[in-house]
Design a protein around this nucleic acid. Structure first.
Lengths: 113, 113
DNA sequence: GATAGCGCTATACCTTAGTATACTGCACAC
DNA sequence: GTGTGCAGTATACTAAGGTATAGCGCTATC
């Protein structure tokens, strides 16, 4: 384990940052939606179908929050009928280092528990 | 951004790992408790006092979960009166790379939002 | 003109997470 | 023997997160 991770745990700002991050990605559906979008699904119904058991209510609620956090864009194409496309942003990819750490931690954790 | 973070988002196992990790550290109090223990608080009442508004119920519930995940140890010293000490484990420190990424992501995110 | 698909919203409900308050049993101090 | 601190537990409640179901307005297809 590298020493760069040694950090001042008593720093209340750091704590706040951790809580902020948790707030952005926690909830039952957020990561699932990001995954669905990452694998190319763009349209509302398409995303809904790709995520078993999600309801329309939850999907639109979570998409809105992801959009507010600039992790997802919503584009309205003025064709007829109107076509709406959701896409993950480039910015969303800045989550990767963190998600990657989560994956490797949990992988290791499985061997410990 | 380094390429080592490029990852197969459609991999369902990775998704499961992320959810596992979130499960371990999410909730209103877990990180606060880890912080309190990290800054040297060891005894139940002491921890409780250091975290504003936490109730005994939540504290004991969360400590149990943290103990189950081997992030915290509970030691009973058989003096009279009995003395109980909680401590974070060395293993808990393996969370640091991830928490560190969370902190830096949220720091950056503040500038974006 | 009935049915189906699109992109949702509305309402009501249920379940989980967290809160509030009281209480237990033990040891010590006054 | 009353009060204090320790380490909690028990019970009841509220709030937040999530579910279930129905429906809207639009367009296209049969």
């Amino acid at each position: 384990m590298k020493e760069e991770y040694v950090c001042n745990f008593s720093c209340p700002t750091d704590l706040k940052y951790i809580q902020d991050t948790l707030y952005v990605i926690s909830g039952k559906w957020k990561v699932l939606i990001i995954v669905s979008l990452s694998s190319g699904h763009k349209r509302y119904r398409e995303i809904a179908k790709s995520i078993p058991n999600i309801t329309f209510r939850m999907l639109s609620k979570e998409l809105k929050e992801l959009e507010m956090n600039k992790l997802v864009t919503r584009t309205v194409h003025n064709e007829t009928p109107v076509l709406i496309e959701y896409e993950i942003t480039e910015y969303c990819k800045t989550l990767w280092p963190m998600l990657s750490e989560m994956i490797s931690w949990a992988k290791h954790h499985r061997t410990v528990i």
